[in-house]
Design a binder for these strands. Structure first.
Length: 575
RNA sequence: CGGGGAGUAGCGCAGUCUGGGAGCGCACCUGCCUUGGGAGCAGGGGGUCGCAAGUUCGAAUCUUGUCUCCCCGACCA
């Protein structure tokens, strides 16, 4: 590709509305341009990178026996009404009517469409296992799109759906996808983790997320430093702290704590550590059913664990008025004793091992000291309700400790079970001629988001450092002085030879000063660069520079070409 | 949707408080010059100041409304 005839509109300055580095660099390097909030043009260079990644995904999906197809992005409301998600999905589902007043939506995902196709076409156990996938544009009317391609409203996604005769067959399909995902992200040269995850609104029994590690990541994840356990903090299990053998119970004592509304205030006021206090929170369901939650003072509630444990669709903190009405006390002095009206009280498992704690008295400016479970208050059940923190013991092995990371979710695999097949009546006949419900799995990869995540993880002050497998070009040839016929002829020759070897080459033939060319080449992140200048040429040599390390090799022309070929081949070969 | 901020040339911004010339840097066009890290000189083109209504002799500037975008929360690939 000739740079002078191509289209790479780079920017010297950072657009003011880009916050994270990948978004800034994608704009500056001329990969994308915003059309509207969360909606982007993919410019030629950005599209090349996306296509590279799509092809890796395609190869690995095909290898894992998934079959490519393409579903429509506009979907009829009836299917969503049938699955029940027309009601549930909320405003994220972009709905509209056609000229005949029939309702439609832009597909945010395709469980309904694929299940509808499968129920019509898959009738026998002989036709399974089968797994369909597509790479397609989705639309979710995000409440707050941000960070460029990282969280757009319109985005490219690879989604796959597996169909199996029973749960254990579905597990095999799931494992196959899990392994394919591992290969996909390894091939891209990304530093990532596969972690256990909550299933969220998609539903189903279990799932893993694939997280690219980056400080700017929106998710917190933990991994064990001794075993293979890794999980999203939303899901990560905590271990109870073992109870003291025979705690000596001190007498209950009511203490004034004027204006001490936070755990830190109370603990500081009483000269105690916050882990000797119990924090009391009141939460409500979507139907305003309340629950009181007890946690060790220094712990943080995991709302997803609470939601799952209560079997609610939604949790939110109770309002000040609700709290007053339920407990008779303002927030900050809540506790399980002396409640105005009966209230379900549940506690985190760690609370079970605590004794002589400080806890709110349900009275303004009053706390109890030396409160004890059983003697002074009771709870309905103990469950894992808190967020794990770095240094917590691993829930799976004895010696491990949890480490904490930030991650960008680029892939997610789910075991769906029969949620959609039951709703849409997707069944088959087994070997005995009996009708059975199909078991499903679904598997997503954010294509644009992965490119953004790769940039988030691979950049420096000069711009993007693309991992070679997803770089728009493998290498560039930079002719320093285009007016020098010898330089141009040699540069062109090198460009032709590299192309003939199957390399993707960007030939910077622009009549620009060297500084501009170097800056642009660095910014757009081409992994390898061959510079042809008159000085080097006088000795028959050109320069090969690696973008990632800055390493420079001054080599005879043929050797330079061979070096680039080998480096590209090595980067593309996946063990 | 709740809270905060911003809309002035392609990009980054000043001007708004205190009403009266629409400006600066980069980018772009022409010429000269220059060619190993975003050069220099000279000349030039480009903006309904987000939109609408109002106040005023006069509005980028004051008032009201409205739209859009960005940041913090719930959602997710």
């Amino acid at each position: 590709m000739l740079y002078s005839r191509y289209f790479i509109p780079t920017l010297k300055e950072t657009p003011s509305d880009a916050e994270v580095i990948s978004h800034q660099l994608m704009l500056r390097a001329g990969l994308i341009r915003k059309l509207s909030a969360g909606i982007y043009n993919y410019l030629p260079l950005g599209l090349r990178s996306i296509r590279k990644f799509e092809n890796i995904v395609r190869e690995e999906m095909n290898k894992a026996d998934a079959i490519e197809m393409l579903m429509p992005s506009v979907q009829p409301a009836e299917l969503w009404q049938e699955s029940g998600r027309w009601q549930f999905y909320g405003k994220e589902l972009l709905r509209f009517k056609d000229r005949k007043e029939n309702e439609f939506c832009m597909g945010p995902t395709h469980e309904e469409v694929i299940t509808d196709m499968v129920r019509r076409e898959i009738k026998s156990y002989r036709q399974m296992p089968i797994n369909f996938y597509q790479i397609q544009t989705k639309f979710r009317d995000e409440i707050r799109p941000r960070f460029g391609l990282m969280r757009g409203r319109e985005f490219i996604m690879k989604d796959a759906y597996s169909f199996d005769v029973d749960s254990s067959a579905a597990d095999l399909s799931y494992d196959k996808m899990y392994q394919a995902y591992m290969r996909i992200f390894e091939r891209c040269g990304l530093n990532f983790r596969a972690v256990e995850a909550d299933t969220g609104s998609i539903g189903g029994s279990s799932s893993h997320e694939f997280m690219v590690l980056a400080d700017s990541g929106e998710d917190a994840i933990v991994s064990c430093d001794a075993c293979r356990y890794a999980a999203n903090v939303e899901k990560a299990e905590s271990r109870p702290v073992p109870a003291q053998a025979e705690p000596e119970l001190s007498p209950l004592q009511k203490t004034t704590t004027p204006g001490m509304k936070t755990i830190a205030d109370v603990a500081g006021f009483l000269g105690l550590d916050s882990n000797q206090t119990v924090k009391t929170l009141v939460y409500c369901s979507e139907k305003d059913e309340p629950v009181m939650v007890l946690l060790r003072g220094d712990h943080e509630l995991n709302e997803i664990k609470l939601k799952n444990n209560m079997g609610w669709d939604e949790v939110r903190m109770a309002s000040e008025e609700q709290i007053m009405q339920l407990t008779g006390s303002p927030a900050g002095f809540l506790g399980p004793m002396g409640l105005k009206q009966p209230l379900t009280v549940i506690a985190d498992i760690t609370v079970q091992g605590m004794s002589n704690v400080v806890i709110g008295a349900n009275e303004r400016d009053m706390h109890f000291q030396n409160a004890n479970l059983g003697r002074d208050f009771t709870v309905e059940r103990f469950v894992d309700l808190r967020n794990v923190v770095a240094g917590d013991p691993c829930p799976r092995c004895e010696q491990g400790r949890l480490e904490m990371w930030r991650g960008i979710e680029v892939g997610h695999v789910f075991k769906l079970g029969t949620k959609y097949s039951t709703a849409l009546n997707a069944t088959y006949l087994d070997a005995d001629g009996r009708e059975q419900v199909i078991f499903m799995g679904c598997y997503g990869i954010g294509i644009g988001r992965t490119i953004a995540a790769a940039i988030e993880q691979n950049h420096d002050e000069n711009g993007i450092i693309f991992p070679l497998p997803i770089a728009p070009f493998h290498c560039s040839v930079v002719a320093l002085n285009t007016k020098d016929k010898g330089v141009m002829a040699e540069a062109e020759e090198i460009y032709f030879k590299l192309e003939k070897l199957g390399m993707d080459v960007l030939f910077d033939d622009r009549d620009e000063r060297p500084g501009i060319k170097f800056k642009d080449n660095d910014l757009i992140g081409i992994p390898l660069r061959i510079v042809v200048g008159s000085k080097g040429l006088a000795e028959g040599k050109v320069e090969v520079k690696k973008r990632a390390t800055g390493e420079v090799l001054l080599l005879p022309i043929e050797e330079a070409i061979e070096t680039v070929r080998q480096l590209v081949e090595k980067a593309l070969t996946f063990a």
